[in-house]
Design a binder for these strands. Structure first.
Lengths: 223, 223
DNA sequence: AACATTTGTTAGGCAAGTCTAACTTTTATA
DNA sequence: TATAAAAGTTAGACTTGCCTAACAAATGTT
């Protein structure tokens, strides 16, 4: 049985792994920042999780969930998203209120509870934020994602991943204040060179190149 | 904000106070036994709770909740019983399954959650075991209830709650088709061993032990 | 009232999870 | 490639909640 804290580390690792499917590893500082603890603390816990064979970890190396660790992390994510759905759908919580309480509820230990809750909610596929809810067996509806370059004029989409993971590209994204989840509206497509005019979040219109648009994964349904 | 553990101590103290309304105090060993810890551990925690002015406690003295402590304990009890009701009514948990999960759920911190849950359940007055659910302000419907063992021959009564909430007892009740609200007629009392012959609903006469009769709360006025 | 039993406390230790400060390794850059 | 910066680790300390073992107080019994 995992402690509350151990569960949070696994969940953080799973989340970080989603941010870059090609390289689902994380660093110690990254983990620590995500969990609101100091890097030293994360190091300690990673050693412990390694002992339990939940993560692959080596000194100064990148961190990766093992199959077992991933499975457990997905179970927690499943609970989190089901509870969010419950709060939103049944108890009239607002979009931004659900997360905090679900953070607590996700640690309740009872398989029966989770499965019954899912049934009670009518086997929902997505949570209030549009994120897919893993099934009891760990299956998770794969969300179709496309490249920004495929989006039609006037459509709004949300960033879900990057194709190119080079430093230059990532730094460019950072400069544009684009991260996972950022909404983008395609204002105009220029056929001549494949560039486009887009609106990032609530920023002013801005032009980006075809190369740029072909390296950013987005989805048309917020998640 | 109280820790999970502190909350459990307060709740235990409240429960013990219910066991003898005239003397709602508890002893260190009693507390420890109830919580499954050693007396030394309870002593430590009681000092801490005294610091926080949640209990009245003096070396070698009896332990009593302060007003503030009682208030907090009741809030926890409220959550526990609302969650039990939720599990039983909405998720089809059985009588004897609700407690364990509610033990976890009662520690979730969110006033909004509790109040919304109560509303969702239709402001129930009693939980699945027949125990009254405290209101948000701490009010708790006072129920006059007596033990089946106190009922005179020939009288009819209605089950309102169970004293023993162990799985064996609850499953026995289930087998006898006794739930909250079931009418029982006391046909005969055997002075020799305290057992009695009773009629459950419209079933045939049946003998039950003194131990049984001393663990079933009933009321003489249908509710 | 004296002694035995029960009840409760103290002292010292342990594990989990956190921290700070100092150190080491890796990575980036001039 | 040498050096600076970033990333990561180690050591030592703190808090919470728990334990055991030894001791102290209160209670019950003859």
């Amino acid at each position: 049985m995992l402690s509350y804290t151990e569960e949070n580390y696994l969940k953080a690792l799973l989340k970080l792994s989603f941010q870059n499917e090609a390289k689902p590893e994380a660093g110690t500082n990254e983990m620590a920042a995500h969990l609101g603890v100091k890097p030293a603390t994360a190091t300690d816990m990673l050693k412990k999780l390694k002992e339990k064979e939940l993560v692959n970890y080596k000194k100064y190396g990148k961190i990766l969930l093992t199959d077992s660790g991933k499975q457990q992390a997905i179970a927690i994510l499943r609970k989190h998203r089901l509870w969010e759905t419950f709060l939103y759908e049944k108890l009239d919580f607002s979009w931004d209120e659900v997360h905090e309480v679900a953070e607590q509820l996700e640690h309740i230990q009872s398989n029966k509870l989770v499965d019954k809750l899912e049934e009670f909610l009518g086997f929902p596929e997505f949570d209030p934020h549009g994120d897919p809810i893993p099934k009891a067996n760990g299956d998770m509806p794969k969300v179709e994602k496309i490249l920004l370059s495929e989006v039609k004029e006037g459509e709004v989409c949300w960033v879900v991943a990057v194709k190119d993971t080079s430093t230059v590209f990532l730094q460019y994204l950072e400069k544009l204040e684009i991260t996972i989840g950022t909404p983008i509206k395609v204002l105009e497509r220029i056929d001549f060179d494949g560039s486009m005019s887009i609106q990032i979040s609530d920023q002013e219109a801005r032009n980006v190149s075809m190369k740029f648009a072909e390296n950013l994964f987005i989805t048309l349904h917020q998640r």
